[in-house]
Amino acid sequence: MSQAGAWGLLILSGFLDVAWAVSVKQAAGYSRVGWSLTSFVLLGLFIFALGRALQLLPLGMAYAVWTGIGAIGSVVAGILFFGEAVDTARLAWIAITLVGMIGLKLTSR
């Protein structure tokens, strides 16, 4: 696998993590079978993709980028799908998280 392929898998894993978080929310404490099964499938997929990406990418940088995608994506999903609040402070923290992810990528070897 190439570096670009590893990055693609890392980004895919981050988005699958967001989809997993949404499915867990929709599973309502694992009381809804379809959403519960979906959450388990997404969990397996994002762990597999993350594990493959970590074969080439540095752990600290990759994990920070992956969790950043998950954190930012989950906040955005909460706003879009669950009516969570949008305010200046939340948007500022998203921006700070994004800057941290970019900084780690730029300084990783």
Rank of each mutant, 00 (worst) to 15 (best):
V24M: 07
L56Y: 01
S13A: 13
T107K: 08
L12Y: 05
V33S: 03
I72D: 00
I94R: 10
I79V: 15
L9P: 00
V86Y: 14
V22K: 05
V75M: 09
P58I: 05
L43I: 06
V76H: 13
V99A: 14
L98Q: 11
R52N: 08
W7V: 00
V18E: 02
A71H: 10
V41S: 04
V24P: 03
T38A: 13
S74G: 10
L56N: 06
P58A: 09
S39R: 07
I72C: 05
D17P: 05
L16I: 02
R109P: 13
I96L: 14
E84D: 11
A71N: 11
L106T: 13
V76K: 11
Y30K: 00
L106S: 14
F82V: 04
S39Q: 10
W35Q: 03
L10T: 01
G78R: 12
W7P: 00
W66T: 02
L98E: 09
L80A: 12
G29N: 08
A28G: 07
A62E: 04
L9T: 03
L10M: 00
F81M: 10
Y63S: 07
S23Q: 05
L104I: 11
I94N: 04
I47Q: 03
R90T: 15
M101I: 13
A77P: 12
A71W: 15
V76Q: 02
F46G: 00
L10Y: 02
G51K: 06
M1K: 00
G44D: 05
L10H: 00
F40M: 10
L42F: 12
M101N: 02
Q26I: 12
R52K: 08
F46L: 06
G5Y: 01
S74P: 10
A53R: 03
G83F: 15
D87W: 15
L10D: 03
R109S: 12
T97R: 14
V99S: 08
M101W: 06
A19M: 07
A4D: 07
L16E: 05
F81Y: 12
Q55R: 09
I96G: 05
L42K: 09
A28N: 14
G14A: 12
S31Y: 13
Q3N: 09
G8H: 06
A64D: 04
G29F: 13
A27K: 11
D17M: 13
L50I: 04
R90H: 11
F40E: 04
G70W: 10
R32T: 14
G78N: 12
I11Y: 00
L106A: 13
V86D: 12
G68F: 01
L50E: 00
S31L: 10
A21H: 14
K105C: 08
G5T: 01
L37F: 10
I69N: 01
